[in-house]
């Protein structure tokens, strides 16, 4: 299994190459060099050419890309064109913020999707509500859900702050108050997808013979549902968790800007607008690595949930 995990992790290399190349060539090829943006619209052509020469933007794109790649392999991701911080300095303080709300959103979505749809008492009420919420989560764009939550919990009820960020050191309660709405906003879409995937599997598993056997033992509906049906229905949800990292990044961009949260999402938008490709591509690499790690983790969780599955 270790060998397999190693092989999986090696896929970071080709995926990383493709993602960074796409980011680099599409942004540079479509919109132009960073120098024009750095100097503004009234800059002289000479000044732009000078800056292009300084940074090497006048060389062929392939050369620039390979140079970036060569340095990245040694751990040197360069400096941001706009803030002149090293890329690590720009990204590292923001990374935990995005990781926190991202992971919390996925965990919350998984937990809510599997729990609500497994309820057996008052099932006739809970199930349609779970499905209805799922449809809302999938169809409504993130920012509308976020605005709706702000309106309800901040404006009308006044329970939670609307926007802004409070780090852990400002107090746990204060921190949690600030992250709750962003997490709910970000998890809505995933709750929806996970719920629909889970319900389909749950209904199929319920018809399997071992569920009838579990009932025949004299277990309660709740025990049958949570001990036998739920763990046997959760595998496709785990697959989706592994696959949802791409959308999570997209959701984080919107959610972070809506709630003014200093995370990676906001940084990615800024870097794309500024053609700040060292930052942009480093974030791309982070996403690629996370997706590969998450998918490998999902495969490992499979074997824990279902002893029949062996990785080899």
């Amino acid at each position: 299994m270790l060998a397999l995990v190693g092989r999986r992790l090696l896929t970071v290399i080709p995926s990383g190459l493709i993602v960074t190349a796409l980011l680099f060539f599409s942004v540079n090829g479509l919109i132009g060099s960073p120098a024009e943006l750095m100097l503004g619209t009234d800059a002289t052509l000479e000044a732009i050419a000078e800056l292009n020469r300084q940074h090497g933007f006048d060389r062929p794109l392939i050369t620039q890309y390979l140079e970036w790649m060569g340095k990245a392999l040694t751990g040197d991701f360069g400096r941001s064109f706009t803030t002149h911080q090293t890329v690590a300095e720009a990204i590292l303080p923001r990374l935990p913020v995005t990781l926190e709300i991202g992971i919390a959103a996925i965990v919350l979505a998984t937990f809510a999707a599997t729990t609500f749809s497994s309820v057996t008492s008052a099932r006739v009420v809970v199930r349609p509500m779970a499905t209805g919420l799922a449809i809302v989560g999938i169809t409504l764009p993130n920012f509308i859900i976020g605005i709706g939550l702000i309106y309800l919990f901040s404006v009308e009820l006044g329970w939670l702050p609307s926007i802004g960020w409070a780090p852990w050191r400002t107090g746990i309660i204060n921190h949690l108050q600030h992250v709750l709405l962003p997490i709910l906003t970000l998890s809505a879409y995933f709750y929806g997808v996970f719920t629909l995937v889970y319900q389909a599997e749950y209904d199929a598993v319920r018809r399997r013979l071992f569920v009838r056997v579990a009932k025949a033992k004299g277990l309660s509906e709740r025990q049958v549902s949570f001990r036998h049906v739920l763990p046997n229905s959760i595998l496709p949800v785990i697959t989706y968790v592994g696959l949802s990292l791409g959308q999570l990044m997209g959701g984080a961009v919107v959610t972070e800007s809506l709630f003014s949260i200093p995370g990676i999402g906001g940084l990615l938008v800024d870097s794309i607008v500024a053609r700040d490709y060292p930052v942009m591509m480093a974030i791309g690499m982070i996403v690629v690595i996370t997706v590969v790690v998450m998918n490998t983790a999902a495969d490992i969780v499979y074997t824990i949930v279902n002893p029949q599955i062996r990785l080899d």
Partner: peptide, 27 residues
């Protein structure tokens, strides 16, 4: 009532089924 039926199932009356291959929970 279901809660009383539950105390009958497996206790007063038990059942075994046709397909042993799928009668047990795989996990």
């Amino acid at each position: 009532a279901e809660n009383r039926m539950r105390s009958v199932r497996g206790n007063d009356v038990a059942m075994i089924f046709q397909e042993p291959m799928s009668s047990l929970d795989p996990i």
